[in-house]
Amino acid sequence: MKTDDLISMLAGGVAPVDRGLLAKRFSLAVVLAALGSLLLMLAVFGVRPDLPVMTRTPLFWGKVALPLCLAIGSLWMVTRLARPGMSAGSGRWVVSAGVLVVWLAGLYALLQAEPDTRVAMIFGKTWRTCAFNITLLAIPGFISIFWALRGMAPTRLGLAGACGGLLAGSLATIAYCLHCPEMEIPFWGVWYLLGLLLSTAIGALIGPRVLRW
């Protein structure tokens, strides 16, 4: 067999690369994560009874904006890190901006409040369970997002896992906003972010084990 014939035979069985595979996998993963977190929230916690009233207030949408901003930034990072040799990119600035805005708004709210109400604004009524509830609701996201990552070729496994965990936690927090009764910005700046930090840490820990290829 001639060399040219051998090359033609080997090349003939190569399937074309699906350039849209990354977008397809992560689109499906995000939809499944968001839907799974929502259904889990409904089954375990339920929707707050005054939700129709609260959705007509800007403060409620400000609460949703925090995890939404972090979800956008972490999705940006995780889709880059799903490819070999890629950095996290500019998504980290989106995440940092979301955290900075909520901290500045929380600090402003505390400075404007009466001194004897500030502790209550930070701790609310659910501080003992908030972060753990968010982590629980992130379970569907961990499953679907890490499935999407495993189908690609990440090389920075710890960082990819951390960003995947942050994405799962962010989507879980959006779902949790439909249940959580807390409406003080300082509360979100502490306990929501603690739940997101837990999800990120879990992702960083399991990433090198689950995403190894």
Rank of each mutant, 00 (worst) to 15 (best):
Thr129Met: 12
Met121Phe: 08
Ala113Leu: 00
Leu111Arg: 06
Pro115Met: 05
Lys125Asn: 12
Pro115Asn: 04
Ala131Phe: 14
Leu111Pro: 00
Thr135Met: 14
Lys125His: 14
Lys125Val: 09
Leu110Ser: 10
Arg128Ser: 11
Trp127Gly: 00
Thr129Phe: 12
Arg118Ala: 04
Tyr108Val: 08
Glu114Val: 03
Ile134Val: 15
Val119Gln: 06
Thr135Gln: 13
Thr129Lys: 04
Phe123Cys: 01
Ile122Ala: 08
Ala105Asn: 10
Ala109Cys: 09
Val119Asn: 01
Ala131Ile: 12
Ile122Thr: 05
Leu110Pro: 05
Arg118Val: 02
Leu104Cys: 14
Leu107Trp: 14
Ile122Pro: 00
Ile134Pro: 01
Arg118Cys: 02
Thr135Asn: 13
Leu136Ile: 14
Gln112Leu: 08
Ile134Phe: 11
Ala113Arg: 00
Gly124Ser: 10
Met121Leu: 11
Ile122Phe: 07
Ile122Arg: 03
Gly124Glu: 06
Thr126Val: 11
Lys125Met: 09
Thr117Trp: 04
Thr129Ser: 13
Glu114Arg: 04
Trp103Asn: 12
Leu107Tyr: 13
Ala105Ser: 13
Leu110Trp: 05
Leu136Trp: 14
Arg118Asp: 00
Phe123Lys: 01
Thr129Pro: 05
Gly124Ala: 10
Leu111Ser: 08
Glu114Asp: 08
Leu111Ala: 07
Ile134Asn: 07
Asn133Trp: 09
Asn133Asp: 15
Ile134His: 04
Asp116Gly: 01
Tyr108Phe: 09
Gly124Tyr: 08
Tyr108Lys: 02
Lys125Tyr: 11
Pro115Asp: 08
Phe123Gln: 00
Lys125Asp: 10
Ile122Tyr: 05
Trp103Tyr: 14
Ile122Gln: 04
Met121Thr: 01
Thr129Asn: 11
Lys125Trp: 11
Thr135Pro: 10
Ile122Lys: 04
Tyr108Pro: 01
Thr135Leu: 15
Glu114Gly: 01
Asn133Tyr: 11
Tyr108Gln: 07
Asn133Gln: 15
Ala109Val: 07
Thr129Ala: 13
Val119Lys: 03
Val119Asp: 02
Gly106Trp: 03
Ala131Trp: 13
Glu114Leu: 04
Ala120Ser: 00
Ala131Glu: 14
Pro115Phe: 03
Ala105Lys: 05
Asn133Met: 12
Ala109His: 04
Ile134Thr: 12
Ile122His: 05
Ala105Asp: 10
